[in-house]
């Protein structure tokens, strides 16, 4: 595989992670537990969407086949999407959404930070912008994981259940890719340190490692992704070639 196509795969994968995360977070709009939180979730969705657009645009350029961000977002089927499974999981209750965001941000922060120092100028610039946003997402999710974990009996039960439910999907984030500009396997220690500290403060138990579902980077997804894409793409696909 050429270096260019490796770079394309890597960039596309990150772009898809951000896009699907944005799509899920956007589903919360007008449904958050508090109006202030509605605004916060929309901000995070906007950050993810912004990163997705930069990454997909760059991926399209690397591919050199004339595809832009919208071609990549709207005209691929689920078997062609390269996002990790974690981001496509349904939102569940607020605890599940915070668990997903917490783990995603704890991965994206060291990832974008490392990317900011990589040799590829475009990716470095995207990393430099996105890492500040990820720091904010991690902060926000950590704050809620602590409040829900150490809040009421009910919130503790829900938060622990959410962590248990999402945890298996964490491992796929760190699948080794030595040829990539940043090898995700190198980010695991950072992730573990932060996650363990927050879970402990939240009086939550870090689940044991066991089942490790994966396949997102190869286009083998959960059943959920096809539905998500069907909704996201329906209008765009109904009007081939139209401008919006």
């Amino acid at each position: 595989m050429s270096e260019r196509s490796t770079l394309f795969d890597f960039t596309l994968g990150l772009g898809d992670d951000a896009l699907i995360a944005a799509q899920r977070l956007g589903e919360w709009t007008s449904r958050a537990p508090e109006m202030e939180e509605d605004i916060a979730l929309a901000n995070i969705a906007l950050d993810q969407l912004g990163a997705a657009r930069l990454l997909l645009t760059y991926a399209g350029e690397l591919e050199g086949a004339g595809r832009n961000e919208d071609d990549l977002a709207y005209l691929r089927g689920d078997r062609e999407f390269r996002n990790r499974l974690l981001v496509e999981l349904p939102n569940g209750d607020f605890a599940v959404t915070m668990a997903k965001l917490f783990f995603l941000a704890a991965y994206q922060l060291p990832l974008y930070t490392a990317l900011a120092g990589c040799a590829d100028e475009r990716l470095a610039a995207i990393g430099a912008k996105a890492r500040k946003e990820s720091a904010y997402h991690l902060d926000h999710a950590s704050l809620w994981v602590k409040r829900l974990g150490d809040g009421t009996e009910e919130s503790h039960r829900r938060m622990q259940a959410a962590v248990d439910q999402v945890w298996p999907y964490v491992h796929e984030l760190f699948t080794a890719d030595p040829a990539a500009p940043v090898d995700p396997a190198t980010l695991r220690a950072d992730f573990d340190a932060h996650v363990s500290a927050v879970l402990a403060e939240a009086t939550l138990t870090r689940p044991a490692d066991g089942w490790t579902p994966g396949g997102g980077r190869a286009g083998v997804h959960t059943e959920h992704l096809s539905y998500l894409l069907a909704e996201m793409q329906v209008l765009h696909r109904a009007h081939p070639g139209a401008r919006w």
């Binding site: 202030e36 605004i39 916060a40 901000n43 902060d139 926000h140 704050l143 409040r147």
Partner: peptide, 8 residues
Amino acid sequence: LALRNARD
């Protein structure tokens, strides 16, 4: 949380 919300 007030600080976070204020920022947003």
